[in-house]
Design a protein around this nucleic acid. Structure first.
Lengths: 210, 210
DNA sequence: ACTTGATACTGCAACTTGCAGTATCAAGAT
DNA sequence: ATCTTGATACTGCAAGTTGCAGTATCAAGT
């Protein structure tokens, strides 16, 4: 039976449309550019191009790079047609997996230090990428975009990421302040501070930017 | 071989610590409370409690509810110990899957309308939950929290969600404005507007809240 | 000559999801 | 009084995805 095109298949196909890549290069590219939109494992990025070849959406040929062979994948006309079709289909709902927030929800099983450590880890994961994006933008100003005609898309996406990261970092700082006021993690319930917070949220107001 | 405890296993175990549930009730609870921290399928929420029983972290007994039987799961002392251990372990990095952003990155395969539709879908997915959280907070003020002693945790988590949703909604509005200025989706490259944006981002400044 | 890190790729077990299917019961519609 | 609908309750299975171990070559620095 013919394999099925998943969203991940289209993601890889769209990368192949930029230029031919080896699976190895795809893994690097996908890690860097898709990490905060459509994160995929190295393993999958090695499998997907094969599937695309089977479907006639890509071709492959071996190249010799200093004695070692490597499989280079390129998109076909059918592949480009498939990409155009894809843009008309329904988008999947967003999905956020943030274990640090799970730790927060169930923080009453550990100490405040445990919770703060989870927030630290969250912050450093986000901070790393935040910094990388800022540096990437600086490099774009020096004409460093690998596909200059696509700069408008990359930058609008980067805007999303920066806004997101800033919000998360602000919230983490705010959360630290709240947690520091706690006498414990368990059984606090509706404290005066929590009540103030709840009132703001019930009116859809931001407690961080009042 | 003994099954392995995953983060999802701990999530279920933590829910069981609140009170005994049937798998069916767990699916509802997890959908409502964990959807934006640790989203899990109905199928998994039926499987995990069985695994917990096998590990000795939960017990199960059949209840008769009007002639129909149902399996109710409850946490054990060992389960509570396991939860306490869990709080000391390393947190996994966050993972955001947002197909609408993938559509943005590769918007040059479709029309502006295609891209705007993807953003609309993104907005309505977010908006639905945004509204639900606001209403939930209003209900907390009326003493509607199912586990009142845990209100401080729920509300701090809700703060995160509201901030996140607001930021996303603001960005979508901003992105619409940008896209409306485009003459096409393809080959725009570094337009004057994009350059202004890039300059701001390279200095880690928010283009939305200048 | 040797170690290290980048390049390049595969096999496999385990985790997770989506979907179809099965069945009972309560409540409202006809 | 029967019928439909929606909530409750659960399972099997195929397919998508990940993590990890393993294999191998090559370039560059020690």
């Amino acid at each position: 039976m013919a394999p099925k095109m998943t969203t991940s298949s289209y993601a890889v196909l769209a990368l192949l449309d930029l230029k031919p890549w080896t699976a190895y290069e795809l893994t690097n590219q996908a890690q860097r550019s898709l990490r905060y939109a459509w994160p995929k494992s190295e393993r999958l990025l090695y499998s997907e191009p094969k599937k695309l070849v089977e479907l006639g959406f890509a071709t492959t040929h071996q190249e010799k790079r200093g004695g070692r062979t490597r499989n280079v994948y390129a998109i076909t006309t059918e592949g480009r047609d498939a990409l155009r079709e894809w843009t008309h289909t329904r988008t999947q709902p967003p999905r956020l997996e943030i274990e640090a927030l799970l730790r927060l929800l169930f923080a009453d099983h550990g100490s405040q230090e445990d919770l703060l450590r989870a927030l630290d880890e969250f912050e450093s994961d986000i901070g790393e990428h935040h910094q990388a994006i800022v540096e990437l933008m600086a490099s774009y100003l020096d004409g460093g975009h690998p596909f200059p005609q696509r700069t408008h898309l990359s930058v609008l996406f980067a805007t999303f990421q920066i806004e997101m990261f800033k919000t998360i970092e602000q919230w983490i700082e705010f959360a630290r302040g709240e947690i520091d006021e706690w006498p414990a993690t368990r059984d606090l319930g509706m404290t005066p501070r929590t009540e103030t917070l709840t009132r703001l949220l019930a009116q859809d107001q931001s407690p961080l930017n009042p």
